[in-house]
């Protein structure tokens, strides 16, 4: 199960005693098990902060987050995370990166490797098993990062603009792959992006956030069946709607 409950979460970044920025202002949201939710909003709207709070890397100043009724106070292996920056450990080979999580839970190396092989296949990188991160392209690095997060068998996968640094073609391929992984693994995905195209292609629901302080402006349910045709009329209409909502925020 991977139900996420966000209740009245606020987060303020304090610079000094007088000034501070309110990054998130009283955000509440319920995310169903196995749902794919995309967060989109103007830059600096706190979408990454929200994701970090769900992961446990950051704590809210007010409000709370629950995953399956368990309050989140620290990071844990049930919530996997894929970062925008390349986060693979450069001193470990691909396979050793993937078994890092299982090994921390005490799985024997031999068993962990066997298990990891499956995830390596899932992201299509079997032949790069013993390569080091510096030998991989950006897209391959993020694939390994996804495999590494999945190897912990998380219930919720948090993705913070994971394809932001990739070129357009690689990005499209990885979106396809992510959808098929999501369908195979039956997990909840919270996906932060700044690309309307990406959100429209991937999400069950798109959460549009306001400019600072970040609040939820609107939640759009996407009913278009997958795989979505990026150039179809419905997709374009939806994209227009999201873009308009975002434009309102940009003006502020």
């Amino acid at each position: 199960m991977g139900r996420v409950k966000i209740r009245g979460v606020s987060r303020k970044f304090v610079k000094d005693e007088v000034s501070g920025t309110l990054a998130l202002d009283n955000v509440s949201l319920d995310i169903e098990d196995k749902e794919f939710v995309c967060f989109i909003g103007p830059s600096g709207c706190g979408k990454t902060t929200l994701l970090r709070i769900v992961s446990g890397l950051d704590l809210p100043d007010a409000g709370e987050v629950f995953v399956d009724n368990e309050r989140i106070l620290s990071p844990g292996p049930k919530r996997g995370m894929v970062f925008q920056e390349y986060s693979l450990f450069p001193w470990k080979s691909v396979i050793d990166n993937i078994i890092f999580g299982p090994q921390m839970r005490g799985t024997r190396k031999k068993d962990a490797i066997e298990e990891a092989q499956k995830y390596l296949e899932l992201v299509g990188l079997e032949q790069f098993r013993d390569s080091y991160p510096h030998e991989l392209s950006g897209g391959m690095k993020q694939r390994v990062a996804i495999a590494r997060a999945l190897a912990n068998e998380p219930e919720v996968l948090l993705m913070d603009e994971p394809f932001g640094a990739l070129d357009a073609q690689t990005r499209n391929t990885l979106q396809h792959e992510l959808l098929s992984i999501w369908q195979k693994k039956n997990i909840t995905i919270l996906f932060v992006t700044h690309s309307v195209d990406e959100a429209v292609f991937l999400a069950d629901r798109i959460v549009i956030m306001t400019a600072r302080p970040g609040k939820i402006k609107e939640i759009i349910k996407v009913d278009i069946p997958r795989l979505r045709d990026r150039t179809s009329l419905e997709v374009n209409q939806l994209r227009n709607r999201v873009l308009k909502l975002l434009a309102e925020e940009q003006k502020k």
Partner: peptide, 8 residues
């Protein structure tokens, strides 16, 4: 941070 979310 990557290590922390992986359970370390």
């Amino acid at each position: 941070e990557a290590a922390k979310v992986l359970g370390c």
